[in-house]
Design a protein around this nucleic acid. Structure first.
Lengths: 217, 217
DNA sequence: ATTATTTTTTAGACTAGCCTAAATTTTTAT
DNA sequence: ATAAAAATTTAGGCTAGTCTAAAAAATAAT
């Protein structure tokens, strides 16, 4: 059974593997884990010995089937708990990430099964991210950052990145939540900010924000 | 903020303080923590430095106001989560202890407040134990082990000790659950087993079991 | 193609929490 | 009252996870 720390590393490596199909680099892991490269090297050796990743010195890391399965279970737990917190305990969507970071490490298969059932087997979490099923199967969402849409086109908001509370508060305020239609009216060349329409209202959003809004065309 | 381990030690010391009004001994702590006396001495020093306990070498340990408050918050969380698991997730009462041992360490005051509200501000957990309120106030239950009742008298079951799954399964089977009336028909001198009546049925229970059933006269 | 820079790994050290073995203090028994 | 036994503490060592500083390898630049 992996430790809390091992689970967090696996999650990070899984996410880094998803974006960018190359091997994952030590410094990339160090960055997202807010730790130093030397610490990452140590952990890499441990995870490698447990066959969660394959590792070649100075080259990088690839996640194994077993490692992916482990990571997906942690992600499943995280997203189910987030759903619980919002749907049942009436948390706002910007308040749940930190708490779910703790809850995702609770060890009990039957707990997660019962929680899933209690929630009515949800398929997405409050930020629109797909919830892996009990076999670790996850729907591959077809979507792109709002920024990638061509001017004049509309999209449906599928998901938003969940870890920044301030971003989520802002998105909530402007009504940019999953399910909503958003129209890209135009791009400003200078700073790549976007002119958009949500809920019949026109507004300008920065490039940074646009990159965190995921839409389907 | 105390670590998981520190919280577990504090809980143990709190419980040991409650029974027996003396100072708590190193070996007593070692026993309930399933650890060695040397390890306990180390931890005692740490908890003492943080003013959760007062400590005199070779004499023993007393819990401070601050330590008691900390322990009561962990107990509050444990009992609220147990209530959640049984009431909402439909766990049996003998399956929740281990999971609550993990959940009790989740750090978020607002989570516990919202959980409490979600559960309708329960005052006792599924085993009949009182749940401390958000200020750490706990109802002092008036009760005694069934074993202490005089022959011929009846009592209402208030609570049962929660940590042994097999005991709980057995108590459930014979109907000895909180709220029920139990009558002590007689004691067997030889092995101190008890003849009792629950649900109109007569049965014999061992001394060990009787000690774990807490009744009010 | 050789030097400079960046990335990664190794070496050595630290804290938390645990252990065993030995020393010390307290308690019990004679 | 002193010896024996039990309880407790100290000393030293272990693993997990982290760090800094230095060494080694890979990449980029001249």
């Amino acid at each position: 059974m992996p430790s809390f720390t091992e689970e967090n590393y696996l999650k990070a490596i899984y996410h880094l593997s998803a974006s960018g199909s190359q091997a994952v680099l030590t410094n990339e892991i160090a960055e997202v884990m807010h730790t130093k490269a030397a610490s990452v090297t140590d952990m890499i050796k441990k995870l490698s010995a447990k066959n969660f990743i394959s590792y070649e010195k100075y080259y990088g890391v690839k996640i194994t089937k077993q490692g992916k399965s482990e990571a997906l279970m942690v992600i499943r737990k995280h997203r189910l708990w987030e759903t619980f917190l919002v749907e049942k305990l009436r948390f706002n969507w910007d308040e749940v990430h930190e708490i779910a970071e703790q809850l995702e490490h609770i060890q009990s298969a039957v707990l997660i099964q019962k929680l899933d059932e209690f929630l009515g087997f949800p398929t997405t979490d409050p930020h629109g991210e797909p919830i892996p099923d009990k076999h670790g199967k996850i729907a591959v969402p077809l979507r792109q950052p709002l920024h990638g849409l061509a001017a004049g086109y509309s999209g449906t908001i599928e998901a938003v990145h969940d870890s920044d509370s301030n971003l989520l508060k802002y998105l909530n305020r402007i009504g940019a939540v999953p399910g909503k239609t958003i129209k890209l009216l135009g791009k400003e060349e200078y700073d790549e900010s976007l002119e958009v329409e949500v809920d019949g209202k026109r507004l300008t959003i920065s490039k940074t924000v646009a990159e965190n809004i995921l839409v389907t065309a």
